[in-house]
Amino acid sequence: MKEMMVILLSTILVNNYMLARIMGTCPFIGVSNQFETATGMAAAVIFVMSLASAVTWLVQNYLLNPLNLGFLQTVAFILVIAALVQLIEMIILKMSPSLYRGLGIYLPLITTNCAVLGVAVINIRDGYNFIEAVFSGTGGGIGFALVLIAMAALREKLNTAPVAKSFKGFPLTLIITAQMAMAFLGFSGFNLEKLFGL
């Protein structure tokens, strides 16, 4: 269990997908201008990233590896993710229309979120087992959600601030993201193994 906590904390804080690996910038910039949409997107990302980690791990280890089709990884993963997102969308629509209204519009966007494909590829590359892969996916999702919601809260305040014309919008958002990334660099000094006594 301690190993799982280390993986979870390291993907949330130390190797944050957005700030330390630069994955998922497009949805990050795209939906962080409103707090409510950002929380909806954040929930959808956590959900899809943990599920995609589980499914792609199974595909790699029970389909591609036994058949020696490792070179099809990219094609297989992106199709699995696209199909998974569609499936989740349909299930949510049937099960809970109110949740669909909250998450629905963000789900198709997630297919092109690099963090989802990124976490699937990184799980395989780092040789995680199934449970570790799921924890790494969930941690990645939570880390992304954390940064997205923090950014949305900042940008709501920023809308009323007097800002130099050239920096308005996109450039300033990037520069603030840089400062957040710098703050998160502090977490890389954390020795997580020692913290949990491993």
């Binding site: 330390a20 630069i22 014309k165 920096f167 308005k168 450039p171 990037l174 520069i175 990334a181 710098m182």
Partner: peptide, 22 residues
């Protein structure tokens, strides 16, 4: 060369392009 620099450089370059256009 860290991600920090990536965000910052792109931010300033975009601001410079906006500034020139303005």
């Amino acid at each position: 060369s860290q991600p920090v620099g990536g965000f910052m450089t792109l931010g300033f370059v975009l601001a410079a392009i906006n500034g020139l256009a303005n």
